[in-house]
Nucleic acid binder design. Structure first.
Lengths: 200, 200
DNA sequence: GCGAACAGAACGTCCGGTCTGTATGTTGCG
DNA sequence: CGCAACATACAGACCGGACGTTCTGTTCGC
């Protein structure tokens, strides 16, 4: 019965528990919503004590802001790496639309939406959320430009296609939120494809 | 100092307080969100006692369900009366789109969205919300059919236009939720108009 | 030893639900 | 018609639980 003492630096210890807590927070947001994401729930999911949680995040607001940071961070890396392996030319369009839709269809969007709605009536959260949302909007616009082709991006009607595409995807994602088990094989991709083609 | 005793029937008394409570509930949903809509807040806004509230709505769930009922009821009457005074022919299209957008741009949508998101992680609320949402969807589809013209409605690409229009409007309304004071004079109406025309 | 990482008890607040008591309509019976 | 019995509308105190925060004590790396 030799107790193996794993010796870790303070920075390592801090980083692991911090990451575990933030992961637990995001998971709780997805599964239980903003109302169900209590500090007790987070600490239970992360397997840390009350003291550990409050040590890293002195208030719940700090916790949510930090979670928001990693949330949008993951969004950004997803967006950046997404456009890497795509075909070129006209064949690019269809998988590209599916790829952008992938940014909206998943737990990350769900968690972000919970924070989004909560931020409406929480000034502190709202003030913190707006710049992130602005940055993400710019990134998505860049992704669309890359993905839909530069020729399309400079077309005057491209702005119409871009706005319609993103707002429609957000609206569709909202609809799916209430029906998490509904089949995702709807005709949306066809509709978006037809729309973008019509405006190209 | 003659005390004028306004003699009201039980039904009248019941109806007025019930209406006041439900109105206060919807207002609180809009101004404070689902989390801020506490029973104490509602009774304060409605100017009723705790007893009065619990007498009419034995649980908070019952209160929210009843509020949801009047909420979707107002939506429905709005939709029905909306299509009444519209021009005919081609001139119908532009004001029609603005009219449909009017269903999404306002406090009613905000309150419904709060319930919508809360319903995601609240099985009881979710079960109650789904049929309402289905009915509203059917009504909006009927409104679009009336408003975009029967010729358009039978066009095979009309389904695409319809889906894009409603999802895009929902997505745009979500974006405005975080910026309640932003100018509503964006180019969305032009985009939607162009899209519907392209698919007609 | 000194500070950071963590553990866990304790506290004050708020919220939803319940309970008892009172006033005001409504109804049935003579 | 008149009054008693009843039902409904409302008032407000009370309770148990949950939540976020604060506090004190302990371990561990430097």
């Amino acid at each position: 019965m030799t107790q193996v003492v794993v010796r870790r630096t303070q920075a390592e210890r801090s980083a692991t528990t911090r990451a575990a807590v933030l992961r637990a927070t995001i998971d709780a947001l997805v599964e239980l919503g903003h109302a169900g994401t209590t500090t007790a729930e987070v600490q239970a999911r992360a397997g840390v004590s009350r003291g550990a949680l409050t040590h890293h995040f002195p208030s719940k607001a700090a916790l949510l802001l930090a979670a928001m940071d990693v949330l949008y961070g993951e969004f950004s890396t997803d967006v950046r790496t997404a456009a890497a392996d795509l075909p070129t030319g006209r064949a690019r369009l269809r998988p590209a639309i599916a790829l952008i839709w992938g940014r909206f269809d998943g737990p990350l969007f769900t968690a972000a939406m919970e924070l989004w709605v909560a931020a409406r009536t929480d000034p502190e959260l709202r003030a913190a959320l707006l710049p992130y949302e602005r940055r993400l909007g710019a990134q998505l616009r860049g992704l669309c430009r890359d993905v839909l082709g530069a020729d399309l991006a400079d077309h005057p009607r491209a702005e119409t296609a871009y706005q319609l595409l993103l707002t429609s995807m957000r609206g569709q994602a909202m609809a799916y939120v209430l029906q998490p088990d509904a089949p995702r094989e709807g005709p949306h991709l066809d509709h978006w494809y037809a729309m973008v083609e019509a405006f190209a």
